Simulated scan of single mutants.
Amino acid sequence: MPPEQFQQKLLAWFDEHGRKDLPWQQAISPYRVWVSEIMLQQTQVASVIDYFNRFMARFPTVKNLADAELDEVLQHWAGLGYYARARNLHKTAQIIATNGGEFPQTVEDFSALPGIGRSTAGAILSIACGQSQAILDGNVKRVLTRFHAVHGWPGDSRVTARLWALSSQYTPGRRAGDYTQAMMDLGATLCTRSKPRCGICPIIDGCQAYRLGLVNQLPEPKPRKTLPIKRAYFLVLQDNERRILLEKRPPTGIWGGLWSLPEFADHPLLVDWCKQKGYRLIEPTVLANQRHTFSHYHLDYVPILAKVDNPIDKVMEAGRTVWYKSGEIDFLGLPAPIKRLLQQYYTEDYYDENG
Rank of each mutant, 00 (worst) to 15 (best):
G81H: 03
I49W: 14
L80E: 06
P114D: 07
W13A: 04
S119F: 13
L40Y: 14
A68I: 00
K91A: 08
R118K: 11
D109S: 09
Q26A: 11
R85V: 02
M56K: 00
R58C: 00
Q41C: 08
A93I: 04
R54N: 15
W24K: 03
Q44P: 15
E37Y: 10
G100R: 02
K91H: 11
N64F: 05
A123I: 03
V35P: 11
N88V: 01
S111P: 13
P114L: 01
I116Y: 10
T120A: 09
R19S: 15
A46W: 12
G117D: 07
G115D: 09
L40I: 09
A68V: 00
K20I: 07
I38V: 15
F110S: 02
A86H: 14
I124T: 09
V33H: 07
L65P: 06
L40R: 09
R19L: 11
Q42V: 06
Y82C: 07
G100T: 06
A27N: 14
Y82V: 01
E102T: 04
E72I: 09
G115W: 00
A68L: 00
R87Q: 09
V48Y: 10
L40P: 13
A78M: 05
M39R: 06
A84P: 12
W77I: 01
I38S: 05
L89K: 02
N99H: 15
W77C: 06
G117Y: 10
F52Y: 15
Q25P: 13
E102H: 08
P104F: 02
N99L: 03
K20G: 13
E16C: 07
Q8G: 04
I95Y: 01
Q75E: 14
G117F: 10
S119D: 11
P60L: 00
D67T: 01
R118E: 13
P30T: 01
F55D: 08
G79Q: 05
T98I: 01
F103T: 15
G81W: 03
M56Q: 08
I49Y: 11
Q41H: 14
L80D: 11
V45S: 08
A121T: 05
Q25M: 11
S126F: 09
G79A: 02
R32D: 15
S126L: 03
Q26N: 13
Y83T: 05
Q42W: 09
A121V: 04
L10V: 04
V48C: 13
V48E: 13
L70P: 15
L125T: 05
I38W: 02
Q75F: 10
A121P: 12
R58K: 08
F52N: 03
F103L: 11
H17T: 05
T106P: 14
Q75S: 07
R87K: 12
W13T: 06
D21I: 02
T106W: 12
Q94L: 06
Q44L: 09
Q44C: 04
N53F: 09
N64W: 05
A68M: 00
M39G: 10
M56G: 01
K91W: 07
N88T: 00
N88L: 05
Y31N: 06
L10R: 10
S36T: 11
R58H: 08
R118V: 05
V73C: 08
I116A: 02
P104R: 05
S126D: 09
Y82P: 11
